[in-house]
């Protein structure tokens, strides 16, 4: 009897936990379709006007309730974010994968040191990373802009890729590589035909992770983005600090949908790993 009661309490508590997790996100989603132009907290019927407004399209709202300064700025920051995240993901994935290969396939004296070195950027508070990079760029003479943002993002995202790819390498059967080498394949051929296909899910996972984190990074970018290279999170942060406007709900909803889509693809790829391995095994035999 007591036990049943305890079970029910625990289930109720856990469901509340998930409500806590998803209610805030759900609220933004609902508010973004609220057609009430004066008070966005009171439901005024379904409307897509805020979405039209952020893309600069004509809508049924009067001009004086359009709060967004300029669609160009918003789209410009989105473009900056996308290009920064793409280049960052590319660079940090290549370097992170090379590093993971070095640490997994070679024995050398500085191994422990490198592990620690790669661990540090992940544990450093964002604000420390941001301002140390700011001081650095100002002193070295690299102008603040897209380039400084990309450098800043790569300097800590390489660690994330390293972790993801290392995990993949650790679970890999080294006998295939050995067999390939024994059969006379050169290291590059072995890497291209054996190692790379087997660690590919890890590499793609690392690339997606660094893309998402780069897209979403606010603190570091906040310090090292120049005047005319604002990224989307920095732009939204500025908007919120100037005041709550209904357009933010629409932008926020789109942003959440986009990142959830990427995350879903990533998780799908991760779940597919065992199948991919099996396929390779049968191919090999």
């Amino acid at each position: 009897m007591m036990r049943r009661l305890g079970q029910n309490l625990l289930s109720g508590y856990s469901l509340l936990f998930f409500v806590f997790l998803y209610l805030p996100i759900g609220l933004i989603f609902v508010y973004s379709f609220n057609g009430n132009p004066l008070n966005m907290m009171i439901w005024g019927g379904f409307s897509l006007d805020w979405y039209r407004s952020i893309f600069g399209m004509a809508n049924s709202l009067a001009d004086n309730v359009q709060y967004i300064e300029s669609t160009d700025q918003l789209l410009g920051s989105l473009r900056t974010s996308l290009s920064v995240a793409l280049i960052t993901a590319l660079i940090s994935t290549v370097i992170g994968t090379l590093t993971a290969l070095a640490l997994a396939r070679f024995r050398f004296r500085l191994q422990g040191f490198y592990r620690m070195l790669l661990f540090m950027p992940m544990m450093m508070p964002d604000v420390v990373l941001g301002i140390s990079l700011l001081i650095f760029f100002v002193n070295i003479g690299i102008p603040l802009g897209k380039v400084s943002i990309i450098i800043g993002h790569c300097s800590f995202l390489v660690s994330y890729v390293f972790i993801v790819v290392s995990a993949r390498l650790a679970g890999m059967d080294t006998r295939l590589e050995e067999a390939s080498a024994d059969l006379g394949a050169n290291p590059w051929y072995t890497f291209r035909r054996i190692t790379l296909p087997m660690i590919l899910p890890g590499v793609i996972g690392g690339a997606l992770l660094s893309f998402i984190i780069s897209m979403d990074d606010l603190v570091i970018t906040y310090f090292i983005s120049g005047v005319d290279s604002t990224t989307l999170p920095v732009y939204i942060y500025g908007m919120i600090r100037r005041g709550i406007k209904p357009e933010i709900n629409a932008i926020a909803t789109l942003l959440i949908l986009a990142s959830l889509l990427i995350a879903a693809v990533g998780l799908y790829l991760r779940n597919r790993q065992p199948a991919a391995l099996k396929a390779e095994d049968s191919h090999g035999s």
């Binding site: 997790l21 998402i212 942003l255 990142s259 959830l260 995350a263």
Partner: peptide, 20 residues
């Protein structure tokens, strides 16, 4: 469900609490 919010934009999740 627990890992998913980690991927959703941080600034958006905080903004939600401003609204609440």
């Amino acid at each position: 469900l627990i890992t998913l919010p980690f991927f959703a934009s941080l600034i958006v999740r905080l903004y939600a609490w401003v609204l609440i």
